[in-house]
Design a protein around this nucleic acid. Structure first.
Lengths: 274, 274
DNA sequence: ACGATTTTGTGCATGTGTTCACAAGTGGAT
DNA sequence: ATCCACTTGTGAACACATGCACAAAATCGT
């Protein structure tokens, strides 16, 4: 198998793309020998990945509702505001426990509290932003990051001219200092906003600094040790997906059109269905 | 159910969150009273949503390989570089046709061409960025947008001081002009980078201007007509998901604490040296 | 006190996506 | 010409996610 080039991928490394932290997680040991003790423990593990993402959304909607003075909310209300099916919402909430009252609904405060606890938002997570370019600058200035609880505690870049310059009230450090600074400041989440070529090296340094969660904006598949969690946000991919839907729509229209003479269009078989 | 407040949700509107353009699916006929006899079975078309996202990744990897002079590639090579299982890669590729040669692999050029065609990248998609704040500014300056094929052709903001000011070589227009300008310039993708409160109004204007694909960075669930596609990128949600995993890990450790004679499970602590 | 009404929580069926495993082509060696 | 090593393409098993439908609580009205 011609390695096509020193493809990175050392031992114990996994590649991460598309934010699918499938992890190695043992297939949910359903039959745990535990009789039925803690109502808390063992919860987290069994929550479907997809549900976790939605919980974050529910939390935002709930916070907004709380601000407007709502004290209770039904699954119907909450689900429609969150843009999901009410049954799905109830099932999602059931993963974190039963905090609703039949015939009444959910108490907003309680729900907010439980979701925050589940998502581990009860304490802050120091964030480091690497790559103070356009995007990095924007991120650093977000100020505490949306939703709070994620204070930006470190900034890094290679550009010597930026070192020491305060961005959003925080001085920029050189990327060589990543391991040291991250360890010192207890950074738990690293955000990579560098050019693709630098991403892997930066990621390695973050990991060396003890960071176990990375949010990657660079269009590269990062190679990381098993225990590191990577989520990815890829502008190009998002746009291309939208492009795909535009194209699909166009195809549909064309197809439905009555005319269509010779139709020598090279399109072979994008149309899978039958 | 009390609409909680003028919760937008007019007729023919759907809510969109979590970048799950479920658009297709069956829920479309929820209102229609067609319980028994499935009207159209023809709607089966389309490539799995998840596969589309991966195709975009394969495309990037392939482009990089092509630049390095590779002419053919095996599913094994490509999949490992893309961070996926090789079987999944082959299945994904099979959705767009059979362009591989057994015993040999895929011709890079051909594959690139076919994926581009499938994703509708054979022609440009004009992009409009609304909200020229930190993020919008960064997006506008991305210059043609990553991967090219997505030229930024219009910029909008409410701030009078910004109107007319050139950002990334393009003058900013007022958001009231969105419908007109979008129609004139044939914008096909709208990017919302405004504060949450303004997002829905902006989205409505984009739709009025004929935009059918929206990339939303604002933390809100947008309500859009059936035919509009929405993808969402939510910083806060991403961070919270990471937070969840950090918390889960912490719980696990705590849980495993009593026992385990130093014999950890997987490959922990891997030396980054490559 | 009790039934009508509301809304949660969940078992089950359905659907979608992932992985396995292998037959079927392909090129090169003999 | 035949065999062999290799790699694709895909049927089928499996795993996960979604949505339905309804019994189980809880409240309210009479």
């Amino acid at each position: 198998m011609a390695a096509q080039r020193g493809q990175r991928g050392g031992p114990g490394r996994k590649s991460a793309e598309s934010a699918a932290p499938v992890g190695s997680g043992a297939p949910a040991a359903s039959e745990v020998t535990t009789p039925m003790p803690a109502v808390d423990e063992q919860r987290a593990r069994s929550i479907p990945e997809a549900a976790v993402a939605r919980l974050a959304v529910y939390l935002r909607v709930l916070s907004a509702m709380a601000e407007q003075g709502a004290t209770t909310v039904s699954s119907e209300e909450l689900s429609s505001s969150a843009g999901v099916n009410s049954a799905k919402l109830r099932k999602d909430l059931s993963y974190i426990g039963s905090y609703g009252t039949r015939g009444v609904g959910y108490e907003v405060d309680v729900l907010v509290g439980q979701i925050e606890r589940t998502l581990g938002l009860t304490h802050n997570h120091q964030v480091a932003v690497v790559g103070i370019g356009n995007l990095g600058h924007a991120l650093a200035n977000y100020g505490g990051f949306p939703g709070r609880g994620f204070p930006v505690a470190a900034l890094f870049d290679v550009d010597e001219d930026l070192i020491g310059v305060p961005v959003g009230g925080l001085a920029v450090n050189h990327i060589d200092e990543i391991p040291l600074v991250c360890a010192q400041r207890g950074i738990s989440i690293g955000v990579i906003a560098t050019p693709p070529a630098a991403a892997q090296a930066v990621c390695d340094r973050l990991v060396a600094g003890g960071v176990e969660s990375v949010l990657n904006f660079a269009p590269v598949v990062l190679q990381v040790p098993e225990h590191v969690e990577v989520r990815k946000v890829d502008l190009a991919v998002e746009l291309q997906i939208l492009s795909f839907h535009v194209a699909r729509r166009a195809d549909d229209d064309e197809e439905t059109e009555p005319a269509a003479n010779g139709q020598a269009k090279g399109v072979d078989r994008v149309v899978i269905g039958r």
